[in-house]
Design a binder for these strands. Sequence first.
DNA 1: ACCTGTATTGCAACCGGTTGCAAAAAACCG
DNA 2: CGGTTTTTTGCAACCGGTTGCAATACAGGT
Lengths: 331, 331
Amino acid sequence: MGVTLKDVAERAGVSRSAVSRTFTEGASVSARTRAKVEKAARDLGYSPNALASSLTTGRTKLIGLVSNNFHNPIFLEVFDLFTRGLQERGLRPLLVNLSNETDPANSVRMLRQYSVDGVIVASSTLPPSFAEAFRDAGVPVVHSFGRYTTSPHVHVVGIDNIACGRMAAQALVARGHRRVAFLGGPQSATSTQDRERGFLEAMALHPEITVSVTHASAYSFDAGRAEMQRLLQGRPAEAYFCGDDVLSIGALSAIQEAGLRVPEDIGIIGLNDMAMARWQNIDLTTIRQPLAEIIEASIDLVVATIERPERHPETRLFPCRVIERGTLRQI
Amino acid sequence: MGVTLKDVAERAGVSRSAVSRTFTEGASVSARTRAKVEKAARDLGYSPNALASSLTTGRTKLIGLVSNNFHNPIFLEVFDLFTRGLQERGLRPLLVNLSNETDPANSVRMLRQYSVDGVIVASSTLPPSFAEAFRDAGVPVVHSFGRYTTSPHVHVVGIDNIACGRMAAQALVARGHRRVAFLGGPQSATSTQDRERGFLEAMALHPEITVSVTHASAYSFDAGRAEMQRLLQGRPAEAYFCGDDVLSIGALSAIQEAGLRVPEDIGIIGLNDMAMARWQNIDLTTIRQPLAEIIEASIDLVVATIERPERHPETRLFPCRVIERGTLRQI
DNA sequence: ACCTGTATTGCAACCGGTTGCAAAAAACCG
DNA sequence: CGGTTTTTTGCAACCGGTTGCAATACAGGT
């Protein structure tokens, strides 16, 4: 089945080293030898075994792409951008699905067995310790959509969730709402913790406004809908900042089912700006997270860390902005 | 950084073979040696290099997962199921994003360089020739969501799109509609070609019913919405079978925006039953594609082919069924 | 204790490449 | 043209494992 270096060398009448060299960037080969080798390789349909060469070069060009968010529609966009971005740089994503797993040990072991050059942890719900386990194992790692800390142990790329919370608060304040609320994702998610904190911080400047906070059990449609249904049993707020878009859409659904109007009776602002938020029959006002930039930066950072592993941990946060659509009344 | 076999052997005071054997299933090692080796390995934090061993065993446990559907929400579910299913069997998905690429040559070369044990092409829009390119290169391959042919050159797992077309037709007929239509995806997609064929075939038995056919430019919300807007300029049909769910939701949006009621003025039936179809504010009547079974079977089949490469190409089709929701009037 | 059959072990070659080094070839130069 | 410098080449060792084979250890039977 497999055509090897040796086969090509024999056919071209040169040494194995010569063949190896024609296929390695910047090695010393004469034009004549190269031509002979290339012809032989073409005839035989040879292409070098990346895994075998990784053994000596120490580089596999494999990047572990680890996530536990296989249910949030935004992650389809995330995977699309990551896979394309990695491919453009000649890197290959080895996908790891971490649903209902929180112990990093298995993933670390597995990805080390495959000698990945680096790892990208793409998750807004995993704790920082997860990515740190990779760093501790000596694997270059970037936590995308992770939490910013002042003394990071690991590269983080994402958004300033606290600032987003503030931004949402300001959007509601600017519209003159007097009773507002945060409908968060699971309390264990760092993203929800930070968004809540920013929201409350900004609201603290407006003591005349009533603020309340509740949490859905997951970043999911069903959880958002269930939580909003619960809220509608009592006296709901005038406007809600929801933990993310999919939660927002669940809440939206509950509100419409209850026969209330959006944004007249209840306003909603989400966070992410996933594809469905743009759908005209959803038309969700939301805070856009600049996915493409975050992912671009994550890849840059993991590549840079592979090249200089001693590199100091760094945090890169990207600014978000409100996308005005139909679920929050206009100013 | 890396602890190797040799390090463990030295520490345990045994040969390298002994270490290798304790880590290979079914090899001959005495309990005493095994204990010594395991202790040494634990002390050193050793875990075997999967790539190095693949060199001699010829197995990498890497499976290429190739797709060009990174925009259809159903594929998030698909990736979730594939990655989990593969992981459960100790296989690792190497993800390849084929957006706007139609030439298999690059993917074939790349996946061969990484010596993947097998490939799963997960796409309802790629031509059969794509998967065949892998088979021609001697790589075990399964085409998931592919087209059934009577003399397959490659394993295919999916649904009978022609039967689905008929099923949709019957659903519309049963509801007494007299003017129906198929709003397909891109004409180049084999799935659309087959659904259309089945739909028309079944409708041919009802000459009293008027049938028309149009195509959206992609399986996407925007394309579905645009096409329905165009249709609404003229005299629309009473009910539409849409090429897939995301197209249906686009069409739904256009209908609602035009101030028409669903299902009273226009009925819609989709295909896939993706997560959003269940969302109560969408509530799409659709034909469910049994994703989990399809993916399970795809993995089984690729594994079986890896074990017996000479295995005859096989087609496995799974039955679909109508999921009644709110976009088609009840019988 | 001795013989035989089975289990365990280490040696050495191999998987498909890469690379330091020294020899050979080519290019340069007066 | 001979001497020197620079390029190109092949040899052989190595990357981190696996495996056939022969040697050794052990167990069972009498």
